[in-house]
Computed example of a mutant assay.
Amino acid sequence: MKCISPICLVLILLTAVPAMAEDKTEGDKKQAEQISFGDGHLEMTKPEGWKSVKPRVGIIDVEMEVPAAKGDGTEGRVTLMGAGGSIEANIDRWKGQFVKMTKDAEVKEETIAEQKVHLVELVGDFKDQRGPFAPAEVKEGYTMLAAIITTEKLGNYFLKFYGPTATIDQNKEKFNAMVKSLKVK
Rank of each mutant, 00 (worst) to 15 (best):
K2N: 10
K2G: 10
C3A: 13
C3T: 11
I4W: 12
P6K: 11
P6W: 02
I7Y: 07
I7K: 07
L9Y: 07
V10T: 05
L11P: 00
L11H: 06
L11N: 05
T15Y: 02
V17Y: 02
V17M: 09
V17Q: 03
E22K: 01
E22M: 03
E22V: 13
E22S: 11
D23C: 08
E26F: 10
G27M: 10
D28P: 00
K29I: 06
K29F: 06
K29G: 01
Q31K: 14
A32W: 07
Q34E: 14
I35H: 06
S36P: 02
S36N: 09
G38Q: 09
G38K: 12
D39L: 09
T45Q: 14
T45F: 04
K46G: 06
W50D: 05
K51A: 07
V53A: 04
V53F: 05
K54D: 14
R56M: 07
R56V: 03
V57Q: 05
V57H: 02
G58V: 03
I59R: 10
I59G: 02
I60M: 09
D61G: 06
E63S: 15
M64R: 04
V66W: 07
V66N: 12
A68Y: 13
A69S: 15
A69F: 12
G73Y: 08
E75M: 14
E75H: 09
E75N: 15
G76W: 13
R77V: 14
T79G: 05
T79E: 11
A83K: 15
G85P: 13
S86D: 14
S86N: 10
E88L: 08
E88T: 14
E88V: 13
N90I: 13
I91Q: 07
D92E: 15
R93Q: 08
R93S: 03
R93V: 02
W94K: 08
K95L: 02
Q97R: 07
F98E: 08
F98T: 06
F98K: 10
V99M: 04
V99D: 10
A105G: 00
V107H: 00
K108L: 09
E110H: 02
I112L: 04
A113R: 01
A113K: 00
Q115S: 11
K116R: 14
K116L: 02
L119R: 14
V120K: 03
L122T: 07
V123M: 08
G124W: 07
D125H: 08
D125F: 11
F126W: 13
K127A: 15
A134G: 04
A134V: 12
V138F: 05
K139T: 06
T143L: 03
M144D: 02
A146G: 12
A147R: 01
A147S: 02
A147C: 00
I148T: 04
I148M: 05
T151R: 04
L154M: 09
N156Y: 01
N156R: 02
N156P: 01
K160Q: 08
K160T: 12
F161A: 00
G163S: 04
G163R: 01
A166E: 10
T167Q: 06
I168F: 00
I168A: 06
D169H: 01
N171M: 04
K172R: 14
K172G: 01
K174Y: 00
F175L: 04
V179G: 03
V179A: 03
L182V: 01
K183A: 07
K183G: 04
V184T: 11
